[in-house]
Design a protein around this nucleic acid. Structure first.
Lengths: 248, 248
DNA sequence: AACTATGTGTACGATTTCATACACAGGGCA
DNA sequence: TGCCCTGTGTATGAAATCGTACACATAGTT
């Protein structure tokens, strides 16, 4: 009876929980609806592999998906995170069909998915759907760009703060279930680097840490401690996809 | 009378020198032609500023434009480079109207530019023009992503090789007019770091260096010395925009 | 020929991150 | 209770890069 996440065991949020789908005019939305398939995915689940096919695009309504790049040497780096504000699989309508990175579930994710062909057909009609998808793609470009800058100029401490905030924005609580090992893979640094940074943040009273569960105690403090990258990405995303987000 | 670049003083390459324009069906191209305005831009010229308006999009036919990000602290980093294979100003048709980075001429550039409204009108019609622009945008995303990974995991030596090769692909000769100071701004490292790397490459017989002029002696050697990032970006660009490029 | 601005080479300690190693702590299981 | 696995904390020296400083070379100017 003490299942930790029993509350969300069988909940199925409506597709409108996704920002892109909710932004559609009613007629567009109704036409899309029959093609949407609900799916739940656990941590670590891969939505697509580097260079592989994308049979579906995903519109998350809960949880987080990371866009990861894996180098030839097997080292990884996170390019961006996507939650209910976006979609996974932009390269389909961008005409590339595939893309050289991976989409991996970072936090238990519920999503609606749409067959590739259905998406492309709707996209080709132009209109609001196309415009929204393109705007989201630009927000994604901004996030990837900011990641590039952050990787180059900012300390692990700052990057960790940025990462925590980006994740927090996409989760209902102030808790993240995530080991330091996994975070280190996302940030592309050593596990010890994350341990040391997390320890500093804990000593500063910003977070508490315990066996794969991070609790954020002082969110404003975290924002002060983070680099500008977080704010830039957030502002640009809100500018491009301005919507009354309850959890915003 | 000894103007260094007198040879290209008044040459005006046709718009078809640009890969995107050349890929258009004849009818589309003919309709676009009246709106195209030829323009020459010197090193350092800024096509647009971070967050500023984009009155035109640019289709280079010669030279290189860098997409730069400038942090709040004034430090810069290059996100991508664009030559005659692409265009500058994707955020216009992506629906964002503006973008938080700068477009700066890295190597004397000749381009055709198109008013923003004309571009958006043509884009909205869909068809080959839209598809090509989107594919180029995806190639750009790949390049930015790869920059993010490269910044994170690869040495200055490797990054310098990658950067030289990316530039070389967009220039007619095996020479680059570029000071170490400028390169360091692009790569986001100290000027001394570039000096040391360039010195190593010179000792290995890959390049020669002299007061703002780099000559590449051993291109295959440079490719071996570079990280995988160069090849990934190049292959993906060629996959998305497959065209008989003379200078390819 | 002297001067100056620009571009390049070199040096130094400080800082950050890396690689490797190992100790400890909590939870599940026999 | 004892064991093992996972997750976390800590230590150490190596490597890369940084910040600062300065010397030198070349091209153009006076």
């Amino acid at each position: 009876m003490k299942t930790p996440s029993a509350s969300s065991q069988s909940t199925r949020p409506p597709p409108t929980q996704n920002l892109i789908l909710s932004a559609l005019p009613s007629t567009d939305y109704q036409r899309l609806l029959p093609g949407l398939e609900f799916i739940e995915m656990a941590l670590g689940h891969s939505l697509y592999e580097s260079g592989g096919p994308l049979p579906h695009v995903y519109f998350p309504v809960e949880g987080i998906v990371s866009l990861l790049y894996v180098t030839a040497g097997g080292i990884s780096a996170e390019l961006a995170v996507v939650g209910s504000e976006g979609m996974i699989g932009v390269s389909l309508f961008m005409g590339g069909e595939t893309t050289p990175n991976r989409g991996v579930v970072q936090s238990a994710c519920k999503a609606y998915r749409l067959p590739a062909e259905t998406l492309k057909a709707h996209f080709a009609e132009g209109g609001a759907f196309q415009l929204t998808l393109l705007k989201f793609t630009q927000a994604l470009i901004t996030q990837i760009s900011q990641t590039a800058v952050c990787n180059l100029h900012h300390s692990v401490d700052e990057q960790l703060c940025r990462w925590l905030l980006l994740s927090l924005d996409r989760l209902p609580e102030n808790k993240l279930q995530m080991t330091q090992e996994l975070i280190s893979n996302m940030l592309g640094v050593r596990r010890q680097g994350v341990t040391e940074s997390a320890g500093r943040l804990e000593r500063e009273g910003l977070i508490t840490y315990g066996r794969g569960l991070i609790t954020v105690l002082d969110r404003p403090g975290l924002e002060k401690r983070a680099c500008e990258c977080y704010t830039v990405v957030r502002r640009e995303t809100e500018r491009l996809l301005p919507v009354p987000r309850p959890g915003g």
